[in-house]
């Protein structure tokens, strides 16, 4: 069963898989089924996947290129259901697994189902218990004092954040912070600079760079950012968008990185203003 309520039936474990959802590609790899992948998108920047042919972007993948690979399973966005892509793949007799991923619990569901489709049931169980254990370990190490408010920047121009009901909202909470836009009305709201300054978060976490790219925080010179106490106090964390903006197996690592950073922030806060002063740094970067 996929997220469109359709049964995906395979004769045996899938051997030739095309995923046009980067987080699901990572999940397939995490389920120890890397060798089943026959293609990638250009957003799958993991060097260990570089040998695979790229289908281009994820929004309009090249149908002919997909068909040419003779896949026995295609993993596509759930809202692709009514798109020509899904219809034509099914017309060609290629099974399509539709996935929507917003929350961490969605990762559980897809791990189990894809594990089954890939003949990796045991790996799925192992992966999920490991994921759960890592997230629990983070959750059960709280920070002293009130949770710092966190502004998460999905992209800076125009500023877009993660609202309620998203895995990032969950990760912030698990890591011991409070999402400053937890009360937003949509999942991925675009927000104005005035509203950001008004809410004045304790910490700014920004996914403005990809794997291997530098981020010198140049975008913080755009109007308004310097007015934030978080920016003035050097409490900004530039994170890898390929890790943080993806609801895949990387959520545990993302939670651990954020938890560690918030631990430093709350420690400095507990140590008084002197320590806070000493802690002033350039925008932090996580390798």
């Amino acid at each position: 069963m996929d997220d469109q309520g359709q049964n995906v039936h395979l004769e045996g474990p899938a051997r030739r898989v095309v995923s046009i959802i980067p987080s699901m590609t990572e999940l397939v790899v995490a389920l120890d089924a890397r060798e089943a992948l026959v293609a990638r998108t250009r957003y799958d920047r993991d060097p260990s996947l570089a040998y695979l042919p790229s289908l281009g972007g994820t929004i309009r993948p090249n149908l002919e290129a997909i068909a040419d690979l003779h896949p026995d399973l295609v993993i596509a966005w759930s809202d692709e259901e009514h798109s020509p892509l899904s219809r034509r793949l099914r017309d060609m007799g290629i099974p399509v697994y539709h996935a929507s991923v917003q929350r961490i619990e969605d990762i559980h569901r897809h791990a189990q189902r894809l594990g089954h489709l890939l003949g990796r049931d045991a790996e799925a169980t192992g992966f999920l218990s490991d994921l759960e254990a890592r997230l629990t370990a983070v959750r059960e190490t709280p920070h002293p004092g009130t949770p710092p408010t966190v502004l998460y920047i999905v992209w800076h121009d125009p500023p877009q954040t993660a609202g309620p009901g998203t895995f990032l909202d969950e990760i912030i909470e698990i890591a011991g912070g409070r999402n400053v836009f937890h009360d937003a009305r949509s999942s991925w709201p675009q927000i104005s600079m005035e509203e950001i300054v008004r809410r004045d978060p304790d910490v700014v976490v920004a996914a403005t760079r990809h794997d291997g790219e530098p981020d010198d925080g140049g975008w913080l010179r755009r109007p308004g950012w310097q007015e934030l106490t978080a920016v003035q106090g050097g409490r900004t964390l530039a994170v890898n968008a390929d890790l943080f903006n993806r609801p895949g197996p990387g959520v545990a690592e993302a939670a651990e990185i954020l938890h560690q950073y918030l631990a430093g922030v709350t420690e400095a806060r507990a140590g008084g203003s002197e320590l806070d002063e000493a802690n002033r740094t350039e925008p932090g970067t996580v390798p």
């Binding site: 600079m193 005035e194 300054v197 008004r198 004045d200 109007p223 308004g224 310097q226 007015e227």
Partner: peptide, 12 residues
């Protein structure tokens, strides 16, 4: 923050 918003964002 009102002053920051006024001077650095809204007036310009």
């Amino acid at each position: 923050t009102s002053r920051s918003i006024l001077v650095h964002l809204r007036l310009p």
